[in-house]
């Protein structure tokens, strides 16, 4: 779409509009166990994108007809708070939120050992509190921390990041502006220890060579995010040790 007022996304010095290098992540903050009622929870920020994820379960739920006899059912809700976007977002689920709830559920189902809890349900809630690009990948990163915090057995944590192409350059961890005015936006999530991709979408146009490069760039970013996830999980326990 030829949008009006397209800003310059790559400056003369090769840096992005916010001063980052093309392969640089935004400042990332993660905190685990932020909600006392949920079985597991996490708050994750990629730059100004702020997302809380909460997990309830495994638990038996009624109506029984949605349960499966041999494994747990995952229910996942990706939702944006009305004040999270520039223009107020109607709280009713949009088609986008419905699609993202599905792809995120599928990304998490790949890692959870659902066969350990037949007939039970695991609920994953993702609320975007502030949206500035990359909300679904921030959400998945937070959701997998929340699942670990709840003690739900998983193959690996899932770490996500969105790679984009702006002004012809492949960039890591796009923000809202880069998403809106760029040529491509590729959210991707992986189980880094196992090298498995559980979420992959492309909105935009890439040549096959650009796509291969974008995958490599994403993998690099995901490894950095994975490191932060592990630290955030261990932090809860390490802090207590220090008190001794």
């Amino acid at each position: 779409m030829t949008k009006k007022n397209k800003p310059k996304l790559i400056r003369e010095d090769g840096l992005r509009h916010d001063g980052r290098r093309p392969d640089e992540l935004r400042p990332i903050r993660m905190e685990v166990g932020v909600l006392s009622n949920a079985n597991g929870s996490a708050l994750v920020e990629y730059g100004r994108t702020k997302v809380i994820a909460a997990v309830y379960g495994p638990r038996e739920l009624h109506p029984r007809h949605i349960s499966l006899p041999d494994r747990a059912v995952i229910r996942c809700r990706y939702h944006m708070a009305p004040f999270s976007t520039e223009e107020r977002k109607n709280p009713a689920p949009s088609r986008r939120e419905i699609e993202l709830s599905k792809v995120i559920r599928e990304a998490l189902e790949a890692t959870i050992f659902t066969e350990l809890y037949p007939r039970a349900t695991i609920d994953v809630f993702i609320e975007v509190l502030q949206a500035d690009g990359g909300t679904r990948t921030t959400g998945i990163t937070a959701a997998s921390l929340a699942l670990a915090d709840a003690g739900i057995p998983m193959r690996d944590l899932v770490a996500g990041v969105a790679v984009g192409k702006v002004d012809g350059v492949l960039v890591l961890d796009i923000d809202q502006v880069e998403d809106e005015y760029g040529e491509a936006d590729m959210p991707i999530a992986m189980m880094p220890s196992l090298g498995k991709i559980t979420l992959l979408q492309l909105n935009g146009v890439l040549t096959p060579e650009e796509f291969r490069e974008a995958l490599k760039l994403a993998e690099k970013g995901i490894r950095e995010i994975y490191k932060l996830q592990r630290e955030a999980l261990k932090k809860k326990y390490v802090e207590i040790k220090v008190e001794e």
């Binding site: 350990l116 057995p153 998983m154 193959r155 690996d156 944590l157 189980m191 220890s193 196992l194 326990y237």
Partner: peptide
């Protein structure tokens, strides 16, 4: 202290936990 996905060992090991 280990987290999900952390590599514990390689080879033939006896495992006492599911």
């Amino acid at each position: 202290l280990v987290v999900p996905g952390e590599l514990l060992a390689e080879g033939e090991v006896e495992v006492g936990s599911p």
